Simulated assay, not measured.
Amino acid sequence: MIVWAIANQKGGVGKTTTTVTLGGMLAQRGKRVLLIDTDPHASLTYYFNIDTDDLSNSMYALFLAGKDVTREQAQQTICASGFDNLDVLPATMALATLDRKLGTQSGMGLVIRRLTQLLQNDYDYVLIDVPPVLGVLMVNALAASTRVIIPVQTEFLALKGLDRMMGTLKLIQHSKSLQHQVTIVPTLYDKRTRASLEAYQKLRTMHGDLVWNGMIPVDTKFRDASTAQTPPSIYAPNSRGVFAYNGLLSTLLSQDQPV
């Protein structure tokens, strides 16, 4: 099983779009994929028309179980996405209370890692949509993953957010003795604007080989796919945005091999 965390400490940079698009593409290639929503806003959960009010279980309940969470509990919490080979572990707003209620309890930083170990034989890939806040949810996602994918909007303020994310990643890696492969993905790139070009060039200058050598363009098909509650690669397979994500996925697959 390969576990990817899609994270950034700035919102609105394309984390959920990246999670859904890459997950959909992997599923279309016949891989068994689990998408984990750890954001209290539950955008990934809503994307697949999963109503949090109707859920008897969610990621919050699994965190309440903590280190005692079982495979049966995890399987009972997983929701079908409506698309072949693609499942979702849903989030609810209750996740926003985790740091206050449970953040100091022993073992709370490793709940998602335990979940992935319990589900090791059920999935080939796990993609975690991470909230833009440093806390127990982000720590969990980073502790469970071997690769961190960081979508970064190609504009000045987003670059500042990336600086915070890179600092957080180094801090957590040091405290948890972790190593990650890191892929920075330029997103919302608009070739018509100087701001996008300058931001992309600065990304390359500051972070070098950590930056994927392509970029994800602004594409209204992403919004349309979200409205249709369908992964972009299924909704608009020939769109320029999907073409770009296919290039990103090819790069990631060439670097990661299942174990």
Rank of each mutant, 00 (worst) to 15 (best):
T52V: 08
T17Q: 05
V139R: 09
D53Q: 00
L134P: 02
V152E: 02
T220M: 07
I36M: 14
T18R: 02
P132R: 03
T154W: 00
T45H: 09
T146M: 13
F48V: 10
V130T: 12
K191N: 14
V136T: 14
A74P: 07
I2K: 13
N8T: 02
G30K: 13
Y60P: 08
N85M: 00
A141E: 07
Y200L: 11
F156N: 07
K10H: 13
P217L: 08
P231C: 11
F222N: 01
M93I: 14
F83E: 12
G161Q: 10
M108T: 01
V133F: 05
I184R: 00
L98A: 05
S58M: 01
Q76E: 13
Y47K: 04
V111R: 04
D54M: 12
D122A: 00
D209S: 14
T38S: 15
K202M: 12
V69C: 00
K15D: 02
S81V: 11
W212N: 12
A94F: 10
A144M: 11
R204Y: 07
P217F: 09
A199M: 05
C79K: 14
W4D: 04
I112P: 00
V33P: 06
T21G: 09
P131M: 01
T227F: 03
Q201Y: 01
I234K: 10
L248Y: 15
D53C: 00
Q153W: 02
M165T: 15
M206H: 00
H207D: 00
A143M: 06
A5T: 12
L26D: 09
A7C: 13
L210K: 01
D224E: 15
L157N: 08
T45N: 10
V20Q: 04
A228K: 14
S43Q: 02
V133L: 07
N121D: 15
K101L: 12
V130Q: 07
G161Y: 09
I50V: 07
G214T: 08
L142I: 15
Y235N: 09
H41P: 04
N57K: 07
R114Y: 01
T38H: 09
N213T: 14
Q181H: 02
V182K: 00
L142A: 08
Y235R: 03
K15E: 04
Y200M: 05
K170I: 01
G167K: 15
A96T: 08
F222Q: 04
S81T: 12
A143N: 13
P186S: 07
R147W: 03
L169G: 11
N140G: 09
S145A: 15
M166C: 02
F48P: 12
Y235E: 11
S250P: 11
F222S: 01
A158H: 04
G107F: 07
L249E: 14
Y60V: 03
D84T: 11
V130N: 05
N49L: 07
